[in-house]
Design a protein around this nucleic acid. Structure first.
Lengths: 346, 346
DNA sequence: CTGAAAGCGCTTACAG
DNA sequence: CTGAAAGCGCTTACAG
């Protein structure tokens, strides 16, 4: 059994140079857009044409070895199945291509070996930088000190002291959420938050509580559950039980909202008649649920795009800094939220 | 502005060799598990220890240049947001790691440039092989002849004549679906199929129609719509309008089912009282919809895993062949399906 | 300005 | 069996 060998032998830089009647050096410089070189436009054109004719694709490994940039970035996400990361990834891909970079996506799950992911991608010299959307507190990469050696950016994660966090203003989002619900006349609200160790959950929670306090409203009832449907389900049960007078629920994720909807329905609580539900993450599905979900839409695509911008800037020597996306999240109103029921109607 | 240079200089093979007191050659062979070499166990151990101590990570580019395998595969999916591909991807990652490979994920959307994706990954020598889950008919890669030069496998896509298709038996799945609905007493069924050009849609459709015909049942009413919620919504509307006597709907995707549920609800059709809905793709969400969705669960993780196995085998010289997953899909029964309503009850 | 040459970090025939 | 050496395809000081 012979290893399958590619049929066609690789087109090399020399081949291009030969066809264009120049040396490798010139061809290399022209192809790489070196501006310090001075070649006749006709020569330049000949080289470009030759490359196109031969379908020249430079060997990434050779380039990297010779000291050139690999023009590759890696994006680490905690969960491929999560639509939020899928959006961020899409934004990152788009923008990366505009910068001439490829993005290599890796799922950095809790049980997968972050260490070997890192080694495979960074240690092996495959990528120039890392977009990390998977950094929870205590993440192995954070403590290993390995990140010191490589340009990186934290996406949708504020890592204290890193100076490299790219985030949406979630406290601000919670303020918007509060104002919206308040505008509908709600006073007794609950918030379905996430695991305490997760920064986004903390931010949302803090902002919501602060907003209520600033408005002189009763403190929202906060319950922390994991970010999936089951978490939302349990959270809603707790809310109904502990605070039956709550008229509005603000949930941290789409999945939690779906779970909450189910729990409320089960308990005979009408949405939005008795309780309004405000969700996160405007997925196509939101419109098709029963009732359709009012959602807070975060600029996720933009987050991915700006993350790439920030990383590329870092690669070019700009000192890294924390960035909070300027775009405000917006609320897309659907059926799950409504004016508060008049007191005593229930 | 200086380019950010990594602080630590790279640990090379020589460094490991030196520390272990051997030459590069020996170190290389030992590290790569060359069995033809004969070294004392103690020497071998010293080399391994040295590598670990120094945290040695071989430069992927240099290895590739020197003719070694890159130990990297690329997976092309049409849509990152689609949970089906996320599962396939997860399966592929797992298995690839077991084989010592990295998987680079790329979203190969209709409007993205498949050509440049290809060039970036294959042409640049970044990967040894391609897992293609994005090949629709007329896909640029299919006609360009470029695939001749690289080992590849089509995942969940049967590309006629390729001899490299890895698929689930969707006709068989449709047979199972039919038998299930028939078992519930349904006779007048409809099928929400997908765009005619997509092989999976064709297979499902063909199998369902054939099953009905073989059983001597009326031909199912088939409507072709795109694979998302909106498609399912429109499809259900057409079904209600054209065939109000239909009692069971078999939808090709989860999203279509969600859309269909909404359309039925809107039209006052009770699910499963009036019409049963059988969906595909057992997502966590299925349980939380109203009513919860009965789904056909495909061995998606296994598909990703076997795809990697097949590609790795190909890389080792085994002639490629079409493979149909042996595992049968299973039906997870929930609330959206029920025994047919007794005739005339409506 | 331009081209010849060195060197990036590996692997693997090949000679000893 | 083992080690010195060539070579993979590039880039980029450096000498001319």
């Amino acid at each position: 059994m012979e290893p399958a060998t590619p049929v066609r032998t690789r087109v090399r830089l020399v081949d291009v140079a030969e066809l264009a009647g120049v040396t490798k050096s010139v061809a290399s410089r022209v192809l790489n857009g070196d501006t310090t070189i001075n070649v006749r436009p006709s020569t330049k054109q000949r080289i470009l044409d030759a490359a196109r004719t031969l379908n020249y694709a430079p060997h990434a490994g050779a380039k990297a070895l010779a000291g050139a940039r690999t023009k590759a970035l890696a994006l680490l996400v905690p969960d491929l199945m999560n639509a939020v990361y899928a959006r961020i990834a899409r934004g990152a891909y788009q923008r990366a291509r505009e910068h001439g970079y490829v993005v290599l996506l890796a799922e950095d799950t809790v049980d997968s070996n972050a260490q070997s992911d890192y080694t495979d991608l960074v240690g092996a010299g495959r990528v120039e930088g890392l977009l990390i959307a998977s950094a929870r507190q205590g993440h192995p990469l954070l403590d290993s000190g390995q990140l010191d050696a490589i340009p990186h950016v934290f996406v949708n994660r504020s890592v204290p002291g890193s100076g490299r966090s790219l985030t949406v203003d979630l406290q601000g989002a919670s303020q918007i959420a509060f104002d919206y619900l308040k505008g509908l006349g709600h006073e007794r609200m609950a918030h379905i938050s996430g695991p305490g160790v997760l920064m986004p959950a903390q931010e949302r929670e803090k902002g919501f509580v602060a907003a209520a306090s600033a408005a002189g409203y009763p403190a929202p009832f906060v319950v922390r559950e994991i970010f999936d449907e089951a978490g939302g389900f349990r959270a809603a049960q707790q809310i109904i039980e502990a605070r039956p007078d709550v008229t509005a629920v603000y949930a941290g994720t789409f999945s939690q909202s779906v779970g909450a909807l189910k729990a409320l329905r089960r308990s005979g609580v009408d949405v939005p008649g008795d309780v309004s539900v405000l969700s996160y993450d405007d997925l196509p599905l939101a419109e098709y649920l029963e009732p359709s979900l009012t959602t807070m839409s975060l600029p996720l695509l933009g987050l991915g795009q700006l993350a790439v911008d920030a990383l590329v800037a870092q690669l070019q020597g700009t000192p890294p800094r924390d960035i909070v996306l300027p775009e405000k999240p917006i609320i897309l109103e659907r059926e799950s939220t409504a004016t508060v029921r008049s007191p005593g109607t229930a």
